[in-house]
Design a protein around this nucleic acid. Structure first.
Lengths: 180, 180
DNA sequence: CATCCGCTCATGTGATCACAAAATCTGGTG
DNA sequence: CACCAGATTTTGTGATCACATGAGCGGATG
């Protein structure tokens, strides 16, 4: 991966390519060697476990903060998104599944009114991107998103411990398969 | 704050200034308006509370992961750093205090062997930089860092709940003053 | 006197170029 | 055949420039 190559690939010069690369590196999605060479960070099991733990920490907190603000309209939207998730699963569309799945989470966390925390969660998602791709592309499961159901149920019931547990399970389950 | 101005201030051209600004913006330390204008993010109480909560989440986890790997040499180093912290407090050197205080935390968290998590914690520190500056510059206290003592004691005793509590208190106490 | 429109200037963006450093290739030697 | 030294090419960095866009200001109008 060279700056000139990336620039040429998108029809721009080196300058925007450099900025994009530097930004992605600042967010941890790319790795800059000491000589400025850009590589993709190696996906070791340790790193995946770490990022999964970060997801659990951040997203459980975000969900918990969203809970008191969650009203019926939000839950309806979550259920709509969740049906899209189920559709992607049944179509075995890995990238579509990842996109709608993250949309589900983001929609919930937006209610937490915690932009800095949400930004950090999205940074983690970005770093996990290639891993998720590898993971869900490999999965041949057609289960509907059971944990999402639990999340919605806990939201309806105002059950905070249940919500925390459901979010933690949802975030951790897939990645445990890959890293374990 | 203009790119040309920043560049001129450090004797470089626009290009490095732009990259630095973009990187800081990607890390949340600066805010880029839609037109590319760069401003310092407004330090509302909500934002400070959020960042303090992030510190608590991340650093409690980092300390907990460092605990089983903490041996005597590490504790000795922490005590040395802590005496430097106390010296900065007695000299009322706010920026020196912030630097040594963060060195104390970083030294402990390095043992957690969790580079991604540590990087996120450092990002939060960066975002809290101006706030810490304002906070500790205002503090006229000469107390020795009591919470650091508790952290070290918990490390020695292998007391994980105590360590979590001590770290949480240390991280939260100062910021609660400002945001409360 | 307030408000709105227009202009001017400052500012960010992206392209191109010169340069230095690193990597890769090549040829020779043990 | 392996390995090392020198040459060449590739690559990132930083500077400079042209251009479009948005901001700030001044004047005209109600």
């Amino acid at each position: 991966m060279t700056l000139r190559g990336i620039g040429g690939e998108f029809g721009v010069s080196m300058t925007p390519a450099r900025e994009a690369v530097r930004r992605l590196a600042a967010e941890g999605a790319l790795f800059l060697s000491s000589s400025g060479r850009v590589t993709t960070p190696e996906l070791t099991n340790e790193r995946i476990e770490e990022l999964a733990a970060l997801r659990a920490l951040l997203e459980v907190e975000l969900a918990s903060r969203a809970l008191p603000r969650a009203h019926m309209a939000l839950i309806d939207r979550l259920q709509t998104i969740n049906s899209n998730v189920a559709e992607m699963v049944s179509k075995r569309d890995a990238v579509g599944y990842i996109r709608t799945n993250l949309e589900f989470h983001r929609t919930l966390y937006l209610r937490a009114q915690a932009p800095a925390m949400l930004a950090m969660a999205e940074t983690v998602w970005l770093q996990l991107g290639p891993t998720m791709r590898a993971l869900y592309g490999r999965l041949r499961r057609t289960d509907p998103p059971q944990n999402h159901r639990l999340i919605i149920a806990a939201l309806k019931a105002g059950d905070e411990p249940g919500l925390r547990l459901a979010v933690r399970s949802d975030v951790t389950q897939g990645l445990r398969l890959l890293a374990g």
